[in-house]
Measured scan of single mutants.
Amino acid sequence: NQASVVANTLIPINTALTLVMMRSEVVTPVGIPAEDIPRLVSMTVNRAVPLGTTLMPDMVKGYA
């Protein structure tokens, strides 16, 4: 099973992502692959992402 990116904290809308905000976890449904974490750093989220939420491609500006 592939690990996905999961919010390690509440990420407010329009926040630039940092490494400490994200962790990898095997979850269903599958979200952004964990190997993309380095690429996500400094990208911003377009909605509030609660703790434990899987990051989906449409949640990160410029990812999809």
Results as ranks from 00 to 15, higher is better:
V30M: 13
I13M: 09
N14I: 03
E35M: 07
T18W: 03
R47M: 11
T15F: 11
V26M: 09
M59N: 05
K61D: 15
E25M: 07
A34H: 07
A3D: 13
M22L: 09
A34F: 06
V5Q: 01
I32Q: 00
P29G: 03
S24C: 06
A64K: 15
N46H: 13
Y63S: 04
L51E: 13
I13Y: 11
A3T: 09
V49E: 01
D36S: 13
M56F: 08
V60G: 01
V20C: 08
L19S: 06
A34C: 07
G62H: 08
P50W: 09
N46G: 06
Q2G: 15
T54P: 07
A34P: 07
P12R: 10
V60L: 06
S42H: 11
A48G: 15
Q2I: 15
V30A: 10
L19F: 11
A48L: 14
S42A: 13
R23W: 03
A48I: 11
P50C: 08
G52Q: 03
L17Q: 00
I32D: 01
D36C: 06
I13W: 07
N46D: 10
T18Y: 03
V60Y: 01
E35T: 12
M43Y: 09
L17D: 01
M56I: 07
A7I: 04
T53W: 12
V26F: 09
T18K: 06
M22S: 00
A64W: 04
L17W: 02
P33E: 05
T9G: 09
T44G: 05
T28V: 14
T18A: 09
I11D: 01
I32H: 00
M59D: 12
G52N: 15
P29C: 06
P29A: 04
M21F: 05
I32N: 01
S4K: 00
I37M: 14
T18H: 05
A34W: 06
T18S: 09
G52M: 05
L55T: 02
P33L: 08
V49R: 03
T15K: 08
P33K: 06
N46Q: 09
M56A: 07
A48N: 10
V5R: 01
G31L: 02
L40Q: 00
L40N: 00
R39D: 04
